[in-house]
C-alpha cells in the first residue's frame, strides 16, 4: 500500500547474483528497508519498546509525584511536556504509559497467539468436525462487538479474582496477594485476548491447511527428508511470514484496544498510567489546556501508525507473492 513502487521491488528481486548472496530472511529485511514508511515505523516501534523497558527508570519525576501548586503548567524547561491537573509530570506519565501499553500489547498478543496456535493447529490438522466447530466459534466471537465483550469479561472477573486474592492473603499472609496493581493488568490481558484470538486461530488454521498440502513438502517427504527437518526447514519458514505480520498488527491493535478501554474507564486502573485514561482525564480541561489532550492523543496516533506501517511493510517484504499479484 505504502511507499515503494512495485517496479522497485521487482528489480530488488530480480538481480540473481544479489539474491544468491542473501538468504530468505536477509532478502525480506532488504525489501523491508526499501520501504521508507515501514523503516520509520520500525524505528518508532523500537523506540517505543525501549521506552517501555527503561522509560520508568529514566523519567525526571516519579509518575505519581504531585506538585499541586504547579498543576496544569504549560511545557517548560523543568516539565518538558507540562503537568496535568494534579501537577504530575506529563512526560513521566507518558513514559510510564508506554510500559503499560507495551505490557498489554505483548502479553495480549502472546496469549491470543497461543490460543490461535492450539485451536487453529488442531482445526487445520484434524479438519472435519473440529474445523467446522472452530470456524463457527470464531464467527460467533467475532460477531459480538469486541469492546462490549472485553468489558463484560473484565467486570465479571474482577470481583471473584479480587476475592480470591483476599482469601489467599488471609491463608498465607503473603503480602504479594495484597498488591492488586497488576491484577488489573491480568484482567485486561485476559479480556483483550478473549476478543482477539479468533483472527490468530483463523490464520494459523489457514497456514496449516495450505502448507501441508504443498508439493514441496510432498517432494521432501518423497526424497526421504525426516519429519523434523520438514517441520523446521520447510513448513515453519513458509508459514511464519503471515504470522509475523499478524503479530505486529495484533500488538498495535491490543494497544489501541487497551487505550480504548482505559478511555472508557474500564481498562488499566489508576494509579497505573495509561494513555487512554490520560486522554479521558483531559476531557473537561482541553479547551483551556489543549496540551493535556494533544500529547496523549498524538502519542497513541504515532504508535498506532508505526505499527500499521511496519505491519504493511512486513507484509510486503515477507509475502512477496501477494505484492506481485496486486
Amino acid at each position: 500500500m505504502a511507499a515503494t513502487a512495485p517496479s522497485e521491488r521487482l528489480t530488488s528481486l530480480s538481480r540473481p547474483e544479489e539474491v544468491a548472496r542473501r538468504n530468505l530472511w536477509k532478502e525480506a529485511l532488504h525489501r523491508l528497508f526499501l520501504n521508507r514508511l515501514a523503516t520509520l515505523g520500525l524505528i518508532v516501534v523500537v523506540l517505543f519498546i525501549l521506552a517501555g523497558l527503561v522509560g520508568p527508570y529514566i523519567t525526571p519525576y516519579d509518575f505519581l509525584e504531585q506538585e499541586i501548586d504547579n498543576a496544569l503548567a504549560k511545557p517548560t524547561a523543568q516539565h518538558w511536556l507540562g503537568t496535568d491537573a494534579l501537577g504530575r509530570d506529563i512526560l513521566s506519565r507518558l513514559l510510564h504509559g508506554a510500559r503499560t501499553a507495551a505490557f498489554v500489547g505483548f502479553f495480549t498478543t502472546a496469549i491470543s497467539l497461543l490460543i490461535g496456535i492450539v485451536l487453529g493447529g488442531i482445526a487445520g490438522y484434524v479438519r472435519g468436525l473440529a474445523d467446522e466447530f472452530l470456524m463457527w466459534l470464531t464467527d460467533v466471537t467475532m460477531s459480538v462487538p469486541g469492546l462490549l465483550l472485553a468489558m463484560l469479561m473484565n467486570t465479571a472477573l474482577k470481583r471473584p479474582i479480587a476475592a480470591w486474592f483476599d482469601d489467599m492473603y488471609i491463608q498465607t499472609k503473603n503480602p504479594f496477594y495484597l498488591d492488586t496493581l497488576w491484577l488489573d493488568f491480568v484482567l485486561v490481558f485476559g479480556a483483550l485476548a478473549f476478543i482477539s484470538w479468533p483472527g490468530f486461530a483463523r490464520l494459523l488454521r489457514g497456514q496449516v491447511l495450505s502448507v501441508r498440502e504443498t508439493l514441496y513438502v510432498e517432494a521432501a517427504r518423497a526424497i526421504g527428508v525426516d519429519e523434523r527437518r520438514i517441520l523446521t526447514h520447510y513448513i515453519i519458514p513458509n508459514a511464519i511470514g503471515p504470522i509475523i505480520v499478524i503479530v505486529t498488527a495484533g500488538v498495535g491493535g491490543a494497544i489501541t484496544l487497551e487505550s480504548g478501554l482505559s478511555f472508557l474507564g474500564i481498562g488499566v486502573q489508576p494509579p497505573n498510567a495509561s494513555w487512554g485514561s490520560m486522554l479521558s482525564d483531559s476531557f473537561s480541561l482541553w479547551i483551556s489546556f489543549p496540551h493535556l489532550m494533544i500529547i496523549p492523543a498524538a502519542t497513541i496516533g504515532v504508535i498506532v501508525f508505526a505499527f500499521t506501517f511496519l505491519g504493511d511493510g512486513l507484509n510486503d517484504a515477507l509475502n512477496p507473492r501477494q505484492v506481485i499479484k496486486k
Binding site: S259, G260, F263, S280, F283, A297, A298, I300, V304, F305
Partner: peptide, 9 residues
C-alpha cells in the same frame, strides 16, 4: 487512528 483519538483532535 482510533475514534477516541480522532474526535478530541
Amino acid at each position: 487512528v482510533p475514534i477516541f483519538v480522532i474526535t478530541p483532535l
